[in-house]
Design a protein around this nucleic acid. Structure first.
Length: 613
RNA sequence: GCCGAAGUAGCUCAGGGGUAGAGCACAUCCAUGGUAAGGAUGGGGUCACGGGUUCAAAUCCCGUCUUCGGCUCCA
């Protein structure tokens, strides 16, 4: 979008036109900000006690069309900051007034907010602003950097999409405004094409595929955000967890096991208790007065294992791993299929090391991430999640700076593209977040190595160094998939359910043409042989036409289907039907049962995932 | 948690103040079938739940729960 200034200006202008329309319809509206976003624009508005619903979109769109037909010129003007403040007061626009006051005072609108960027209030950090830029169209004047199109008649095609709540300046302690989103494209064709793409993306929605492919269910009796995995879905979980653990195991990590509940005291020491006030699922004991909670993370438990005896520098790095479920009382509105749940299975690990080992350990982890995600063919963005100047972080600022420097070096030397997310760090240290996207482009944080200088200190963890001195180890948190649930959400949408052979819940479907004994026993023989090779094969003996059974196998995205009838019984050979995306990279010319099964087994073993999706 | 939308059969949905419909799925039977839907018959719903309005509520109103799109938070 940045590389299409024309479209950017159209969308930005549409935001103004929508604001103009809303002011016409509700003259008392208080306006927030109205930036351009991917595929369109939004404007934040506050109508006091009145709440807008989507029912009003027709009216708003109608008014916008009038404004577009009026073809009003967009005129740029500048005002001194004092004039601008006087304007905001006069116009009774408290949100604009707040922005202008901040600008006048500090030169920026309280750092890092999108305000300066999106509103286009150009100002060097720390310098006061003396002039601000405005745009006028018809009777509507708005604080804005621009650019805009020449006139309201030149904004292309648009459609209002939805209304949602949005906190003023993104802070949940601020009043909540209503955010109206619209799509904006250069032409009606492009708008319609985008809407069609959205519909396509919805077909990849993991919740839909989870139902269609029989992978997981959510039962109202069990509870919201507590997914249950069917046999098929469990194959995916188990295979992925096995692969993830195998990679860590090969790199020297050892399995540990901890219970799923703990006393509240544990988290008071770790620092989590104060930090995560409302996420605890409390457990009531009828025997003791201990206050117990479901574990929402594993690090404090794992640290108790480390701390259970004296440690020498010779033991470090000490590497623990465990794939285990943690529980968080996520708020109802925050749940999202598998992407955001309350029972979170982490392929977690905690490594205790000396400061001089951090760099190589982190590099090692970054390489593991790289390999895992390249095998799974899942693209990732890399974010260095650093602290900002809020006071919610624990630990020494110098250590933080040092740690952040190390993370930067690690991704630099790995040659990775990354961006820095200020204020995205954990309370105990900075992290590298690897981020996947779902079918609709929503970001899902998956793998994450995190540095921690705080918790080992709080738990009094020590090791005896070469020089006989007791020192505090550094802890590295690391999850390769992050959570299996969230990973699956991204992965199911990425593959559209066409899993590579090694992950496919059902690898071979044997379709019996008839239920004659000879056919049935041949099918059974094929299945037994497949099972012996560790392959997952099922037989379809159902009372349906062959065409129907093939269709069913296709719909379930089974990689290999084999039709078994008299012909096969006689010749002893099979003609596999191969899912299109798999056919592209493996030779499947063999037809005897042994050859066929060997090909499939090799495919599964190689974890080949090159697909033509 | 907040703003908006929605909840009708296992699934996808239609209907709508006068005690419910389709397709698929499921079951039974017929058909012995050859690489993406063979045919017939049948079972299945307190129309999310709880209140209210009404002679009458699945339909209108209120509340709760759950789901969806965002915001905040996050693996």
């Amino acid at each position: 979008m940045e590389n299409n200034p024309e479209l950017y200006a159209m969308r930005h202008s549409l935001a103004h036109i929508m604001a103009t329309a809303i002011v016409r319809l509700w003259p008392n509206v208080k306006l927030g900000v109205g930036p351009v976003v991917e595929n369109g624009f939004y404007y934040d508005i506050d109508l006091g006690k009145q709440q807008l619903s989507e029912d009003e979109f027709d009216r708003i769109e109608g008014e916008m069309k009038k404004i577009i037909a009026e073809d009003q010129q967009f005129e740029h003007e500048t005002k001194s900051i004092d004039e601008a403040i006087a304007w905001a007061k006069e116009a009774q626009q408290p949100y604009k007034l707040e922005l202008l006051n901040d600008l006048s005072r500090a030169g920026t609108t309280v750092a890092k907010d999108l305000d300066t960027v999106e509103l286009g209030l150009q100002a060097d950090k720390d310098s006061k602003v003396s002039e601000v830029s405005f745009y006028r169209n018809g009777g509507f004047l708005d604080l804005c950097r621009g650019p805009h199109v020449e006139s309201t008649g030149r904004v292309g095609a648009f459609k209002l999409m939805r209304v949602s709540g949005a906190y003023w300046r993104g802070k949940d302690t601020n009043p909540q405004m209503q955010r109206i989103y619209g799509l904006g494209f250069a032409s009606e064709e492009e708008l319609q094409a985008y809407i069609a793409r959205l519909e396509e993306a919805k077909k990849r929605d993991h919740r839909r595929l989870g139902q269609e492919l029989d992978l997981f269910v959510i039962s109202p009796l069990v509870g919201a955000g507590l997914p249950l995995f069917t046999p098929r879905g469990t194959v995916l979980r188990d295979e992925l967890a096995r692969y993830s653990q195998q990679m860590l195991k090969e790199a020297g990590w050892q399995n540990v096991w901890v219970p799923h509940i703990a006393k509240q005291d544990l988290y008071e020491v770790s620092g989590h208790w104060a930090k995560f006030g409302d996420e605890w699922l409390k457990v009531e004991s009828q025997e003791t007065d201990d206050k117990l909670v479901m574990k929402p993370m594993n690090c404090p438990h794992h640290q108790q294992i480390y701390g259970s005896r004296q440690r020498s520098y010779r033991e470090l790095p000490l590497k623990y791993m465990e794939t285990t479920t943690v529980y968080r009382d996520e708020k109802a509105g925050e749940l999202l299929g598998l992407a955001r749940v309350r029972s979170i299975t982490q392929d977690d690990s905690h490594t205790f090391c000396r400061p001089d080992q951090i760099h190589s350990l982190m590099s090692n982890l970054v390489e593991i991430v790289r390999e895992f995600y390249s095998v799974l063919d899942l693209p990732l963005k890399v974010r260095l999640s650093f602290r900002d100047d809020a006071d919610s972080y624990l630990g020494d600022q110098k250590l933080w700076d040092h740690a952040q420097q190390i993370l930067k070096e690690v991704v630099d030397s790995a040659g990775m593209k990354y961006y820095i997310g200020e204020g995205e760090a954990a309370f105990y240290g900075p992290k590298i977040d690897f981020i996947a996207t779902d079918a609709l482009g929503r970001e899902l944080q998956v793998a994450t190595p995190q540095l921690d200088f705080v918790q080992p200190e709080r738990f009094g963890l020590k090791y005896t160094d070469e020089d006989g001195q007791e020192k505090t180890p550094v802890m590295v948190h690391f999850a390769l998939m992050g959570s299996i649930e969230r990973f699956l959400a991204a992965y199911i949408e990425h593959t559209a359910g066409r899993f590579p052979v090694w992950l496919a819940p059902e690898q071979i479907r044997i379709i019996a043409v008839t239920d004659q004994d000879a056919v049935a026993s041949f099918a059974k023989k094929l299945q037994d042989q497949a099972n012996k090779l560790g392959l997952r094969a099922t037989i379809d003996m159902s009372n349906e036409s062959v065409g129907k059974k093939i269709r069913n196998a296709e719909l379930m995205k089974v990689p290999y289907s084999v039709v078994i009838g008299e012909k096969e019984v006689e010749s002893g050979e099979v003609q596999p039907r191969i899912r299109k995306d798999i056919e592209v990279n493996t030779d499947h010319s063999a037809h005897t049962i042994d050859e066929f099964l060997k090909t499939v087994a090799n495919e599964a073993k190689s974890r080949a995932t090159k697909t033509s999706l």
